[in-house]
Nucleic acid binder design. Structure first.
Lengths: 129, 129
DNA sequence: ATGGGTGCAAAGTGTTTGCAAGTAT
DNA sequence: ATACTTGCAAACACTTTGCACCCAT
């Protein structure tokens, strides 16, 4: 069975995600890490983001254009600005009972659900005028 | 100002989406339409799917791998099987008041929200055994 | 020493786009 | 006649992968 090694690159990727509170994309993580280690490659960053996501150390948010990553372990929801692409955590509690209800109604086994609110962030509302 | 024309291709794309109840991807729509008109191109299908989405005649569901389309006009939620990729409508009513609440709390102007339940469909649960 | 990990570059996907020709209005 | 649409192919953006070398264990 495969065992995980601790590499400098993996640690840098994890640190970069931790340091952000704005849900960086893989490319933003790459650029951040690249500023410290100018040898690291995109492939390595992607591989490590996937690895860390699978092991549950970070979470991945699927939004248009590019997936985002976040160092937060509990299930929660997000707000997406459809103009500038900003992503932030939504102040809405997670209702586990919805998962159970949905499972009962549909026969699916539900692992979780995620809600994305789409709209315009305060900045982008102003810039429309 | 730009006005819409009725082309055979656009109608075929809309019909193909209507004919499906399984949330086809752009490529599935392309293949369906292609079976009728073997000249239509992927570009045309994508352009028309985007056009019809913008005008609100169909709706687009953002899921991993490829966006899905559906001929259903009211806001609603979805179930995604993370194994086989199947998408189906979730029996969960849409709560407009959540949008208002979120807008008030965050300063975003919310257009809508969408919840995706992730899990395994009945078929995929069985095939795991 | 082993075999997981890395850097690099090439390949993959899904989607968009520039352009000349075609066609709905 | 006008200008919206199409087909085609090339271009795109994001992500994955094959391979030889490297290094944590």
């Amino acid at each position: 069975m495969k065992q995980r090694r601790n590499t400098k690159q993996r640690q840098l990727v994890l640190d970069a995600v931790k340091a952000h509170n704005d849900h960086p994309s893989a490319d933003q993580v790459y650029l951040d890490v690249r500023a410290i280690d100018n040898k690291i490659s995109r492939g390595t960053v992607y591989r490590n983001l996937n690895l860390l996501t699978q092991s549950g150390e970070i979470c991945q948010i699927k939004v248009p254009d590019a997936d985002r990553f976040e160092y937060r372990l509990d299930f929660h929801h997000h707000l997406l600005c459809t103009k500038c692409g900003a992503v932030c955590d939504a102040p809405l509690s997670y209702h586990t009972e919805l998962d159970q209800e949905m499972a009962k109604k549909t026969g699916y086994s539900i692992k979780r659900h995620q809600t994305v609110f789409e709209g315009l962030c305060p900045n982008c509302q102003h810039s429309l005028k």
